[in-house]
Design a binder for these strands. Structure first.
Lengths: 206, 206
DNA sequence: CAAATAATATTGACGTTGTAAAGTTTCCTA
DNA sequence: TAGGAAACTTTACAACGTCAATATTATTTG
């Protein structure tokens, strides 16, 4: 028996929105973006073909809800991984591990979260959850000041640097753009220079 | 007169494959991935709806050809930007500028190039052009040894580090994930620590 | 040069999809 | 308990990817 299907044959599902998102995520990771359709989601949870429209409006609405959920989860995962009592570098390392772990565990959703036109960029839920994710990255970007000595935009640059790096690594990893012979035993922490607490200033020869 | 359309009404187009790719790129950047269809491409160049199948097999084939072209162009753009006589840091900076310039100029194609399931990962042309792009990054990753002192995998790590960073920056930029108030005047070079030739060793407190 | 064959393009059709409109059932509140 | 809102279904339609069959042109070969 499929326990994704509503347990009793009621006219109202009761929790259709969440059930559809859950089904959509399974379809997306299993069959890729072309394997995800509103009709398949509806069928998976046992409702009519057009029922999803009541909760998401259109397909972009569903994809946006999925992406918003992803941002919430990646923020949660990072937060839970951060030890209470640890150095800045240790806290940052655990957060980065959580970030990459989410991307590796939900590669298709992760790609969706950073797509340009498939999700509704102005959705309030999405914006709020993106912000929550960014807040965690802000928190663990402390201690990178050595990269930008005496820079008035030191915080913004540290945050942009950290997110750029970890996002790039996560997506190149999940998109299989790293050559396997180079990847032997190398993970995100091995190539992140900010693992150190004591960063020396860089002499800029530009 | 639309000079994308074949000039004379011949049965054989003559250069349909390239014309379709060109039309597809225009549609992709203008209307996003949902605005790109084989039928619209065919109509744009004045052939029947199913003519693209002869050159690409299916839609994934067209998307793959587009992505392959993108990798060739980004490698070309980087190469052309690199000065002949310059320091390693200068050469790297110009290459990174070219990389980000391509992504900013072709955001939808850039996203497609790093997608997981929309393009055919085993396509020989794609693999070759990805390799060519990577080779340029390998070339300009020299001089980053200070990040990984006495590491036997120093080359691989430098390359993974550089690509992770610049790809992450490029996509976060094109996906509008950076807050505008933080972006004021900050570009990829401002937040890349590797701009210096003289990198000091990092003390690792792990 | 002519015939055969490959390459290229068209027509027609089919199943799937997103979505809109209208109707039905259930829930909730006043 | 009546009435309206919310949730769901049914029906329908245009656009899409793709397949099969056919037609036209280009190229090779005898």
């Amino acid at each position: 028996m499929n326990y994704e299907v509503k347990d009793t044959a009621r006219y109202h599902h009761g929790n259709l929105r969440d059930a559809l998102i859950k089904a959509a995520r399974v379809l997306l990771e299993a069959d890729g973006h072309s394997g995800l359709s509103l009709r398949k989601c509806a069928e998976a949870v046992g409702v009519s073909q057009t029922a999803p429209q009541n909760h998401f409006g259109n397909k972009a609405g569903l994809l946006t809800a999925m992406a918003a959920e992803g941002y919430a989860e990646i923020a949660d995962l990072m937060t839970k991984k951060i030890p209470d009592r640890a150095t800045l570098a240790q806290r940052r390392e655990r957060a980065l591990q959580g970030y990459v772990e989410f991307a590796a565990g939900n590669p298709a959703l992760y790609e969706l979260m950073f797509s340009r036109n498939r999700i509704l960029a102005d959705d309030p839920d999405l914006l709020r959850n993106v912000g929550a994710c960014f807040e965690v990255l802000v928190e663990v970007s402390k201690g990178l000041e050595g990269f930008f000595p005496d820079d008035p935009k030191i915080d913004a640059k540290s945050q942009m640097y950290l997110w750029s790096f970890v996002h790039g690594y996560a997506q190149l990893l999940t998109a299989n753009r790293f050559k396997k012979e180079d990847m032997q035993g190398v993970d995100v922490l091995d190539i992140f220079p900010g693992s150190s607490n004591e960063l020396c200033c860089l002499t800029d020869d530009r």
